[in-house]
Simulated assay, not measured.
Amino acid sequence: MMTMLPAQAADQKPLKVASDVPYEPFEMQRPDGTFTGFEVDLVNAICEQMQRRCEWVKQGWDGIIPGLQARKYDFIASAMSVTPDRRKQVLFADPYYAVPSLWVAPDDSDIDDVSGDLAGKKIGVQRATVQDNYVTQHYPKAEIRRYATADDLATDMSAGRLDLTFITGPLAQDVLINRGNFRQLGEPVSKPKSIFGDGIAAAFRPRDRALVEQFNQALHKVEQNGTYDRLMHQYFDYDIHPDTTQ
């Protein structure tokens, strides 16, 4: 999908944006191949503000940073949390949203909380995410099952092949809780910062500082002119602004 183009941008080379879809409600792909979702719509608005064409590229999560480093695309916009480890590989723009992660269990599960070690329990996570890092660090006695996509994770959860899953809150609502037979377990999780980072942001190659500055300027204009809040309320009934006070 390309953004609507201002006339002065018509001759510029498109900026290619990588995203791992589907990851509802942030990134989704319509039957015609075009992209939609909160993050997609937000980045499209930022691209318009930059007066640049943006072209979306589907890229699996496992290879999304290597693909950026190999110059397959210009930046990543794919619900990527800003973490210390990732800062060693990419240059992040300013965070543009933040969401907690949730534990989800079947309605009939006998698991009441996650305060124990969950030894032997089958926990589903998406591979190489902050949720994967959190579960790996805090529940070493559990049987952790890692999935390439959130859809694959949801499929196994629905089929009864998992005891629990740990994923971002909006995704948990969309692919499990809102579809019935599942419930949130415990409180939302957003700490420690060493794992969950500073929020979610677009990721660029370290050498592209000028492009990141342009992106940040456009992001702040989109926040100031009301576009950000309009899109947020279109997709969510709660505030997802990142905490800039930390």
Rank of each mutant, 00 (worst) to 15 (best):
170 P>T: 10
164 L>F: 02
155 T>W: 01
158 S>C: 05
132 D>T: 01
197 G>T: 00
137 Q>T: 14
127 R>M: 10
140 P>F: 13
154 A>R: 02
135 V>K: 04
153 L>P: 01
153 L>T: 04
206 P>V: 10
205 R>V: 09
200 I>A: 04
164 L>S: 11
178 N>K: 13
130 V>P: 14
210 A>P: 01
152 D>E: 15
209 R>P: 00
198 D>W: 09
132 D>A: 12
199 G>T: 02
189 V>P: 05
178 N>M: 03
148 A>D: 13
168 T>W: 02
202 A>Q: 13
167 I>R: 03
199 G>I: 01
163 D>G: 10
187 E>W: 00
148 A>M: 12
168 T>P: 04
197 G>K: 00
131 Q>A: 14
210 A>N: 06
199 G>F: 05
204 F>Q: 08
133 N>A: 15
163 D>E: 12
130 V>D: 08
164 L>G: 03
164 L>I: 05
148 A>S: 11
204 F>T: 07
199 G>C: 11
173 Q>D: 13
156 D>M: 08
142 A>D: 03
162 L>F: 02
153 L>C: 03
129 T>N: 08
161 R>L: 13
143 E>F: 09
188 P>A: 04
138 H>F: 09
176 L>G: 05
197 G>L: 02
146 R>W: 05
162 L>W: 07
139 Y>P: 12
195 I>T: 10
171 L>K: 04
131 Q>D: 09
144 I>E: 06
139 Y>I: 03
135 V>R: 01
163 D>W: 06
132 D>K: 04
206 P>I: 15
206 P>T: 08
167 I>G: 03
191 K>R: 14
164 L>T: 09
164 L>Q: 09
184 Q>E: 10
128 A>Y: 09
126 Q>F: 00
181 N>K: 15
201 A>W: 00
169 G>P: 00
168 T>S: 12
193 K>D: 12
191 K>S: 14
